[in-house]
Amino acid sequence: MLSPEEWGIVALSLKVGGVAVLATLPVAFGLAWILARYRFPGRVVLDALVHLPLVLPPVVTGWLLLIAFGPLGPAGRWLESWFGMTLMFRWTGAALAAAIMALPLMVRAMRLSIEGIDRRLEGAARTLGAGRWHAFRTISLPLALPGVLAALVLGFARSIGEFGATITFVSNIPGETRTLPLAIYSALQVPGGEAMVTRLALLSVALSLGALVLSEWLVRRTHGERQRRGD
């Protein structure tokens, strides 16, 4: 049904999305934890920065990445001189763009579930002999799990749908940065590309819908299960 080229596009999209989301997860969890639990000066600024990619035109996010990670940008020069690594025009750059765009959604999902944890349960765990870290691992983290799973799925769906920041930052290179949305865009420019557009678009719909259903199910399951399984 799909040509080898199209399979390549799907594989690249899954790779970019997967790496973006897994690499972002610890950072997003840390941010969600800090925003949910601590009051400190600058918290509002941090909150706004995290949410910025959600409201900024994606092309602006891509342009900012270009400035930061381009050959002359501070982050770009640093990566180049220390690791001999460049993100420009590479799939890793596409993953970075996707990660930045997914970050706000992931932080929001996890923050909600962290805020929903009864902190007094952690106090109870401490009086039972658990140190801070043990209480976190055995009480807080499992109770935050529905949010973490939802964040993974939502972040992944956002990542494989990323267009504006990606094409601005790492361009549209077949086999390297041409993910699903970019391939659809390219096929639209080519006479006779309609069949490919249709196939890739249907595939996108299926992937996004699947992710939404999965995340909804995960959240329901972990919430509802505790009600149900207590018979």
């Binding site: 349960l121 765990a125 401490r126 009086t127 039972l128 658990a130 140190g131 499992p142 109770l143 505790r226």
Partner: peptide
């Protein structure tokens, strides 16, 4: 710290771990 005190605490609302 609480974990080193050997003080048992029964709370008003039980506070059992729901998971």
């Amino acid at each position: 710290p609480p974990e080193a005190r050997r003080v048992g605490y029964v709370f008003q609302d039980g506070r059992l771990f729901p998971h």
